[in-house]
Design a protein around this nucleic acid. Structure first.
Lengths: 156, 156
DNA sequence: CTGCCTGCAAACTCTTTGCACGAAT
DNA sequence: ATTCGTGCAAAGAGTTTGCAGGCAG
C-alpha cells in the first residue's frame, strides 16, 4: 500500500538522523537493491563502483549498518567468516530460517513463523526476553547425491 | 553404559586416523574437559599451558577440529567474530538452541528437540537433506531490566 | 629412522579506524 | 561556513600456514 520507494525511505531515514544523502551512499543502496541473491560487502563494493566508481570499501562498510538499521537490508551471518546482505522488501517475513546448501553454497530463506514462539519458550525459562533469533540449517543436495548433478550448481 | 573415558576415546580416534597422541594434544583435551562453560581458542590456550606450557596457539587451532570431529567438543558460533567450544559429553542432546544474553554475554544451551523436525520440513521443500542446524536466540535479561541487577552478571 | 607434529612468526581474511581532504547542507 | 563524509592505507582481531627442527611410533 505504501507509495514510499526505497530511495525515499533511505533519504527520510538519513534526514531524520542528521546524516547526508551522498552519491556514494545512494550508489550502494542502488547496487544492493539490484541484487536478488545474498551478497557480500566485497561484491556490493564492485556493484556500487559500477554505478559510482568513487565508492570505497570503507564507505561500503560504513554504509551497511545504516541500510540495515533503516530496514532496507537484512544481515545474514551463516558463520562462514564473512557476512551476507540481502535487500529486505516490504512484506518480507521477519521470521526466516536460512538453509545453506553445503554443496552449492547457496543460501535459501524460508519463512519460519514458529521461530518467535520457540525463542520465547526457550528464553523465558532463563528469565530472558528474546531480541532476535536465527534458525540455520546446513544441508546437502538430494539431486547431487542421487544423480551427481544439481541444477543449481554454479548458478549465482 | 560405555566405559570409555574421553582420553581413551581420543586416543582411539587418533590411532584410527594414523595421528599421534602428543602431549600437547592431550593437554588441550584435558584443558577442554575441565571447563564447564563455553571457551574460546585463546582461553583454551591459557588453560592448556597450565598443564603443558609448551602448547602453542597454532597447535590449539590445529587440534580443535580434531576434537570436534572426534565428538568430544562442540563448536558454537554465535556470530561474534570468535568461535566458542564446549565439551560434548555423552548423553548431551544434539539438538540444542543457544541463547545468548546480550547483557552479560553468557551463552546458555537449551534442548530443542523440535529443531530436527523443523530442519527436515524446511529442507525437504528445497530438495535438501539437513546436515545440522542451529537455533540461536539473542536475548536481554529481565532481572537487569527490572531491578538493574543480574545475578549472573560478571560471573564466568 | 621416518614422517607426522611442533612452535614461531608471518600471512591471510574480513572489518574497523585515523587522518587530511572534499562535499552536502 | 561548518560539519559530516570520504578515500586511502594502516591497524585489528581471529585464524591459518610455511618452515626448520623435534619427537612419537
Amino acid at each position: 500500500m505504501s507509495r514510499t520507494s526505497p530511495r525515499e525511505q533511505f533519504r527520510a531515514f538519513l534526514a531524520k538522523r542528521g546524516l547526508r544523502a551522498t552519491n556514494q551512499r545512494l550508489a550502494i543502496l542502488d547496487a544492493a537493491l539490484a541484487q536478488r541473491e545474498h551478497v557480500t560487502a566485497e561484491q556490493l563494493l564492485d556493484y556500487a563502483r559500477d554505478i559510482d566508481d568513487s565508492v570505497s570499501r570503507a564507505t561500503v562498510y560504513r554504509t551497511l549498518p545504516i541500510l540495515t538499521e533503516c530496514g532496507l537490508l537484512r544481515e545474514v551471518d551463516i558463520g562462514s567468516g564473512e557476512k551476507f546482505y540481502r535487500t529486505h522488501r516490504e512484506g518480507d517475513d521477519t521470521q526466516v530460517a536460512q538453509v545453506v546448501c553445503v554443496d552449492c553454497d547457496r543460501i535459501f530463506e524460508i519463512s519460519a513463523p514458529f521461530m518467535s514462539w520457540y525463542g520465547n519458550t526457550v528464553s523465558s525459562k532463563l528469565g530472558l526476553t528474546p531480541v532476535n533469533q536465527r534458525l540455520q540449517v546446513s544441508a546437502r543436495c538430494d539431486a547431487l547425491r542421487d544423480t551427481g548433478q544439481c541444477a543449481r550448481r554454479g548458478r549465482p
